[in-house]
Design a protein around this nucleic acid. Structure first.
Lengths: 135, 135, 135, 135
DNA sequence: GTGGTCTAGACCACC
DNA sequence: GTGGTCTAGACCACG
């Protein structure tokens, strides 16, 4: 299975960490399975229009964490380590959600509206996915 | 009302952002109200044992966000105005929401669970607000 | 004749200069004539909700410029100096206008719209003046 | 395209604002276009013989205004996006316009003359733009 | 006393 | 090399 990464230069989070996080989440969610081959760091760099060194750094870090493994001349693969605890996955969303709710609160947006906004955005994403424009 | 800030040098988050976040949270949580006077940036700097410029940078950013307002020679105050344009406020949440949903999707968490998680977190925050800890 | 001053704390321009500029403009425009009595610096301070020292500084500067004159025990008066050249008055508006047009240009607002916006604002002010709410 | 900045220490306007204004004007005047790379804040600081932080402050402010955008490790660039909300843009001009009309009124300049003065200034700017001096 | 500005240098993370 | 952060001090204008 192939996944599509999105990076946002100018984000607080360094680009290499954005890559790490997305691959980690993809493995956790089963979109990437042990044995799957990742794009070469050069290809991914070209695809994301960033410096190859940046992708390499992300891969290196992930390898150090044991999530992926690079084999010289063959490529980079997801290792056997299965997806972590689904509870942990959920827990990882709590902080971003807190921030989101704080911002909404500061902006005077009632919780009810936050949920309906979220539903809006969800439908938007669904629509894009079934009817992709450019990616 | 007076609030006590705590900073942790060596944290991933820059000091000036730690200050920003705590003040933002304090306003969101009602511990600081419109019109309240903040400590002068020099005093706060002394209190936290950091450079005055660091506090000032935090205050400057918050002022640009419209959360506080500084008046020459008088001091810095929590702003009275709630929020600019309600529509704009909502629009500003769309991007973080997209990222949130994207992470959830990668992590294999169905949308339904995202919403219920969000409701959990909301209840958590509510509980903290009615029964405040320390800020 | 009495004039109403407006100050904007938090403006770039120091408050005492805002006062100076408005009195100067009022004299130039004939709203204040030689011999007219100005509000005492204490009264004006109370009216504008600022520190008396701030008004005093404005009056002092204006006196140094020869535009007004304070007589101990009697009050502060506009001196005999007549209004400057009407051309100079107009010239004084060119710089603020340049800035205004630059901002409009940056914001992608065509000149035509700037003029109609200006007419809007003018009508707004007229309406307020003939039908004053609070001042 | 490269532009040459000039600063005047000892000017009323703070150095960092002088920098901001010149870059803003350069963009407005088409001397800098979206995508153009600015000098690094260190280089510009050296060029102008001022502290790097001073330039950085100018860049930071401009970024917050959305005029430029800085990317970690890459540099600082003129932003592509024109303006956020056209309505908001217009609203932002109302206050300066009020002040302008107020000064004109105090100075005894009828509204009609204000408009024709504005047209004058507009033509002046147009002329400068088609026939640029130095920036 | 308070904010506004500026300096000269430092260390780090990122690309 | 580039931006991001922080320091320890300084001087000035304002209220």
């Amino acid at each position: 299975m192939v996944i599509q990464l999105h990076i946002n230069p100018g984000d607080e989070l360094p680009i290499y960490r954005q890559i790490m996080r997305q691959i980690t989440d993809a493995v956790a969610g089963g979109h990437l399975s042990p044995g799957d081959k990742l794009a070469s760091h050069r290809d991914l760099a070209e695809q994301l229009v960033i410096a190859p060194l940046t992708v390499k750094k992300a891969y290196d870090e992930l390898e150090r964490q044991g999530l992926i493994r690079t084999e010289r001349g063959r490529g980079t693969f997801v290792t056997a380590r299965a997806s972590p605890d689904p509870e942990e996955q959920r827990a990882r969303l709590r902080d971003p959600m807190r921030r989101l709710l704080y911002r909404a609160h500061l902006g005077g947006i009632p919780f009810k509206d936050v949920v309906s906004l979220l539903e809006d955005v969800y439908r938007e994403i669904q629509a894009e996915r079934t009817n992709p424009r450019e990616v």
